[in-house]
């Protein structure tokens, strides 16, 4: 009998070893994929990164010069998207998670939000064109593009915020209500501060998503080429992802501008990582304060 026990134990150890090995490899694949992408971009694009590249508009049919308008455009669009979407997304999540009666109607709304997350981004682009650009007469502009991207990021933000709110222990709410706080005071003073790091994560994800999208801005904000920087939110604008797309598919000299395409992609990735890093540092500071 003792021998038997020994054998099962060995088998259990082996199966644990195999499973853990599998998990480890799976986790490693993610990291490696990111590294490969990054390596690829650096190897092919770093030659393009010069001071001129970062501070000048494109020249000579975009075969020389820089990408400054695109950088500024992408920053405007993604920040605009977050400014528009974060308050609405957080408010919706608060309503869904804290106030709404948890019943059938709520399940349907949730289903709607989840499906919204699965809608292809080009559909958002068409929606933005029809609604913001044409119907609301915003024209092709930063405003229309930022709002379209905002709609696109809403499900991401709502999802992350709801998750963050659900992670706030029920005991905090009970403690607060038990001291004579109203529901809103409880949410405002205890639940939201506790959930803030998680909400910020949602914001980061939304921002990254918005910065990288091409299709939604194609019809609503971005133009092929403009040498001037935008002066108001009603101006059209260049943007990094769309610029890459244009250079790679419709430029006059697709092959000759390869390094510019990779350079632009590198700038986009660094920009997104930079934005993420800022938010991560801010989040860490918040968490430490708690």
């Amino acid at each position: 009998m003792y021998k038997n026990l020994n054998r099962t134990q060995k088998r259990r150890k082996l199966s644990q070893f195999i499973m853990f090995g599998f998990f480890r490899v799976s986790a490693a694949i993610n990291g490696i994929a990111l590294l490969i992408i990054f390596y690829f971009l650096v190897a092919r694009g770093w030659r393009a990164i010069t001071w001129t590249f970062l501070t000048q508009p494109p020249m000579d049919s975009m075969t020389r010069g820089g990408i400054l308008p695109c950088i500024i455009g992408t920053v405007c669009l993604s920040l605009g998207a977050i400014i528009a979407a974060l308050p609405i997304g957080v408010a919706s999540a608060i309503y869904l998670n804290e106030y709404a009666f948890q019943g059938r109607a709520l399940r349907i709304i949730r289903l709607g939000i989840n499906n919204l997350a699965g809608v292809p981004s080009v559909v958002f682009g068409l929606f933005g064109l029809a609604f913001f650009v044409v119907y609301l007469k915003m024209g092709v502009s930063i405003l229309a593009g930022a709002l379209t991207l905002g709609v696109l990021t809403l499900p991401v933000i709502i999802g992350a915020t709801e998750e963050a709110l659900r992670a706030v222990p029920e005991t905090y709410r009970e403690a607060s209500l038990g001291l004579g706080a109203t529901k809103w005071q409880t949410i405002y003073r205890v639940v939201l501060p506790t959930a803030l790091p998680g909400i910020l994560t949602g914001g980061i994800l939304g921002l990254s998503r918005a910065a990288g999208e091409t299709a939604p801005i194609m019809f609503t904000a971005a133009v092929f080429f403009t040498p001037s920087l935008p002066s108001s939110i009603f101006d059209e604008i260049m943007a990094l992802p769309y610029h890459i797309y244009v250079l790679a598919t419709a430029g006059t000299e697709i092959e000759a501008t390869r390094h510019l395409q990779y350079g632009t992609a590198l700038v986009l990735i660094v920009l997104v990582l930079g934005l993420n890093l800022m938010a991560i540092i801010y989040r860490a500071r918040l968490q430490k304060r708690q």
Binding site: Y172, G178, L179, G180, V190, T194
Partner: peptide
């Protein structure tokens, strides 16, 4: 209920201080 709960304090089974 808000003012009722102010008059009737509660200490819970598990300590539940706020993260403050």
């Amino acid at each position: 209920v808000v003012s009722l709960r102010r008059r009737i304090g509660m200490v819970f089974q598990k300590p539940n201080p706020f993260p403050k």
